[in-house]
Design a protein around this nucleic acid. Structure first.
Length: 868
DNA sequence: ACTATCACG
DNA sequence: ACGTACGTGATAGTT
């Protein structure tokens, strides 16, 4: 029969190792998790490989050990455990607890002593012992039956030592390893050893004489005068060091092997909860599917229109709905397939496309009755695509009570993706994967519970207004913008394409001639070779993969070689051609329009984002690119494009939140804020501000909003760091409350690990409490910037909801078609122009009462280019 | 999948 | 003595 096996983990050393070996890792609450992660990776790997019959984990106790008592200097000078690690210690113990792994820790002894005692005891019982540890001290415990496993870099790589391997590799027995340590000492434990004796000498002496005692008895035979002297003078210290280095194997404890038997009955649900909290997805997946309460997922499949008609009468008050849609993000292909409904403990599967085949008209009619009925409140997940898909059938979704995707985003905006499966796992600990009918029924049932949890959570976070008055009503606005799309003029786009293409060919020729070689100019690598090796231009900056060739670098090389200008032009035009000519051509719909997707749950600050295509980054800064905007035209010849943009919304928000009188007054008096700032910073009257001063002041204003540093400002406006610092200091003197606000928000951010906007939108900032200075500074900048950027986002979102509502109320034909962070773009019928203009201005400027006025500039044109 | 670059606010 | 602006998305090249 095989021997039984005992696995002993050295808790402290494994946590230490993981902490320093693995990159920083935090969960949403900002708790560090890297040591736990490393420890558990190791634990699971060892369990898998060794398949132990017994398992136990030893920890140090805070109380002093006999070593401290006998030698006050023991472990002196050792740094305190960093808080990022110590906060992980109670959590790993909790995990072990739930894994039903016994923890050994006794006051007055170190983990090593407990490990030693346990291993000797177990070996005596004929058990094979595996000690897993992060440091080499435990090597002295190795025998033929006690294997010491030391983990290397990367945490799960290991070296296994038994007595045989120690002798082979180190030339000493495990017991002699103590003598070696006694001679050479150990700085980390502050064990003195013998002065002048290092690793090499220690091994040499022990290999020759076998023990410290024997070395001391043979001092006469040892070569080296100084060494001899030291050994003689410090012989007592050597013996004492050996004592300190010796792991106790006789700690007075009762060991009940039965109690540490490896158990399978661990707390799966507890672990699931904990791993979710720690965001350990890979471990979560490994957990066995526990004895979860089986969800009763009986459902009725609606077979024909008659049945649909019959059952829909049951849909009263609130229904939980899951819309299954093909090609959710592509407008033209976005198609409603199935609907799942959970209502009053009954579940229904409506195979919409099947019913439509049977009787299209009637199906749509009944769906319309359900979906447009305001008295039937709908709760769903990610409902925007349903608006689009339903609208294609002539149905307007009404009565939306909740969208759990939006709720999840507001609760934690850092996720990027809020798939229902993941959200159910995270908040309800339910794992429902798959797309079978039963899976979807389960999901729609769980939607009810999820909504309850979120509803309460949103209330607790004071986000009721943000969710119910802003984000949820906004879904319909965005869906409408997507459906309407932006009409484009293909001829103009093609014309630009041809123009750009000709210029690109010409530039290519010039570049190849100047470089005397054909190469791929688009490849930064090849371009770098040509510029910095062949043409031998000075290297300005490097990236981690090679030479940097970005615009900033090229600009510095401009006067060094005529090829640079050509390359800069080439870069600019190819960007326009590939992204904005070819890119846009590819996304024009059959209806001659571009239907971008507006994503409401992507950004961490609360802004929207736009994809396929991104209409929020259409060129404007340079004329050549700006021409692209001529492609974007009104719906028909009765219309024009109207653009309404907030003037300086972020700085106004800053003035408001900071409550800085000087800045508030500047806005109240309708001053040009950059000129005003220049006058303050440079100490000259407004009328003496030069354009250079204004542009520098503008950079300072931007810098403040982003979370400024003198270095970056100096880079930006090309002045010395000292001068930049001077600007910032003066700025803070002139706008003292701004300084106060920035200091306060950082402090608040540190305290809470999150910051908030004017509508209590929240962003977690775990970075702000990092021990890594760079990460921490980044967190501080986020704390300064997020409330500003996020509050501006709150404001324009509110305005969008109000504008949309007004346009509907007044039954205007004009409509919102685009938002670009601080501006709204509308397709406006000429006969409504004056009315819409004043309505938009009014709604946008008065959407919220701040201590500064909001100002909106309106421009109108026969295309987007003209609306300037 | 990642990097470098560049378009926008 | 570090390394430095905040938030996005698309493209092309490289690994």
């Amino acid at each position: 029969m095989d021997k039984e096996k005992l696995l002993i983990l050295d808790g402290n050393s494994l946590m230490f190792r993981s902490f320093y070996a693995l990159p920083e890792l935090t969960n949403a609450e900002g708790i560090h998790t890297n040591a736990i992660y490393g420890f558990l990776s190791m634990l699971f790997k060892m369990k898998e490989e060794i398949k132990p019959d017994y398992i136990v984990c030893a920890f140090d106790k805070k109380a002093p050990t006999f070593r401290h008592k006998e030698y006050s200097e023991y472990k002196a000078g050792r740094k305190k455990m960093p808080p990022e690690l110590s906060e992980q210690m109670p959590i790993i113990k909790e995990v072990l607890n739930k894994l039903a792994i016994d923890i050994f820790e006794i006051e007055g002894f170190e983990a090593d002593d407990l490990i030693g005692t346990l291993s000797v005891f177990s070996e005596g019982k004929g058990i094979e012992v595996y000690i897993v540890t992060g440091d080499r001290d435990a090597l002295q415990l190795a025998t033929d039956n006690v294997k010491v496993i030391i983990n290397k870099k990367g945490m799960t790589q290991t070296e296994v030592y038994d007595e045989k391997r120690m002798i082979e590799e180190l030339g000493v027995t495990p017991k002699q390893f103590i003598d070696v340590k006694g001679l050479m000492g150990d700085t980390s434990d502050n064990i003195p050893g013998v002065p002048g004796v290092g690793e090499k000498t220690a091994y040499k002496l022990i290999k020759e004489y076998g023990s410290i005692e024997n070395v001391l008895m043979n001092i006469e035979n040892i070569s080296g005068k100084k060494l001899k002297e030291n050994l003689t003078n410090f012989s007592e210290q050597a013996i004492f060091s050996k004592k300190l280095a010796t792991i106790i194997t006789e700690v007075p404890i009762e060991i009940d092997m039965d109690s540490i038997r490896s158990k399978e009955n661990f707390d799966i649900e507890g672990l699931r909860t904990l791993f979710i909290k720690l965001q350990f997805k890979s471990f979560l997946d490994k957990l066995p599917r526990g004895h979860e309460e089986e969800i009763q997922c009986n459902y009725k499949e609606i077979a024909d229109v008659e049945e649909l008609k019959k059952f829909y009468k049951l849909f009263k008050e609130t229904i939980f709905v899951l819309f299954k849609i093909e090609n959710e993000t592509v407008y033209s292909k976005c198609n409603l397939k199935d609907i799942y409904i959970h209502c009053n403990n009954e579940n229904f599967f409506i195979p919409v496309d099947k019913l439509m085949e049977l009787n299209r008209e009637k199906t749509i009619e009944i769906l319309k009755d359900i979906m447009e009925n305001l008295n039937i409140k709908k709760i769903s997940h990610g409902v925007k695509s349903a608006y689009t898909a339903l609208r294609k059938l002539g149905i307007e979704l009404k009565g939306l009570a909740s969208d759990t995707e939006i709720q999840a985003y507001l609760i934690d905006s850092s996720k990027g993706e809020y798939k229902l499966e993941d959200i159910l796992e995270q908040y309800l600990f339910k794992s429902v994967k798959g797309e079978e009918i039963e899976d979807n029924i389960k999901k729609v049932i769980l939607l009810e519970k999820l909504n309850d949890v979120f509803h309460e959570k949103i209330e607790e976070l004071n986000m009721n207004e943000l969710l119910y008055k802003v984000e949820q009503p906004l879904i319909e606005v965005l869906a409408s913008m997507e459906t309407l799309g932006f009409k484009v003029n293909r001829e103009i786009l093609n014309g630009l394409g041809e123009k750009f293409s000709l210029e690109i060919d010409e530039l290519k020729r010039d570049i190849y001639e100047l470089s005397q070689e054909e190469f791929n100019i688009n490849s930064p690598k090849q371009l770098g070779k040509i510029l910095f090796e062949k043409l031998d231009l000075p290297v300005v900056k490097k990236t981690k993969t090679g030479y940097s060739t970005n615009a900033e670098v090229l600009e510095k090389l401009l006067d060094k070689h005529p090829i640079i200008e050509k390359i800069m032009n080439y870069r600019q035009i190819t960007k326009l051609y590939s992204t904005y000519v070819e890119g846009l051509k590819n996304v024009i719909d059959e209806d001659g329009k571009i239907h971008s997707s507006f994503n409401q749950t992507v950004t961490t600050t609360g802004r929207l984002s736009s994809t396929e295509p991104n209409l929020q980054n259409i060129p404007i800064k340079y004329e050549m690119g700006r021409e692209i905007r001529k492609v974007f035209v009104p719906e028909n010849e009765e219309c024009v494009i109207l653009s309404a943009d907030y003037s300086q919304i972020e700085l106004r928000v800053l003035a408001h939140i900071a409550g800085d009188e000087n800045m508030i007054n500047a806005f109240k008096h309708h001053s040009d804020i950059h000129t005003k700032t220049a006058s303050e910073v440079f100490g000259v009257p407004i009328d003496q501000v030069t354009s250079l001063m204004r542009s520098r002041a503008k950079a300072v204003n931007f810098g403040i909003v982003y979370g400024i540093s003198d270095f970056s400002l100096s880079q930006d406006i090309k002045v010395s760091k000292k001068e930049a610092k001077q600007y910032i200091d003066t700025y803070f003197e002139r706008y003292p409350k701004v300084k106060e606000y920035l200091d306060n928000i950082i402090e608040k951010g540190k305290e809470n690990s999150y910051v908030e906007t004017i509508l209590n939108r929240r962003r977690f900032i775990p970075e702000i409490n990092s021990s890594n200075k760079i990460v921490k500074s980044f967190g501080e900048r986020l704390a300064m910037n997020t409330p500003i950027q996020g509050s501006a986002a709150d404001i324009i979102k509110m305005a969008m909801v109000n504008v949309y509502k007004k346009l509907n109320e007044k039954a205007l034909k004009s409509s919102l078609i685009l938002q670009v962070h601080d501006e709204l773009i509308l397709n406006v019928y000429k006969d409504e122009l004056e009315q819409v203009k004043s309505m938009i201005k009014d709604e946008m400027e008065n959407v919220v009462k701040l201590s500064v006025p909001l100002e909106v500039d309106i421009n109108v044109g026969e295309n987007w280019y003209g609306a300037k």
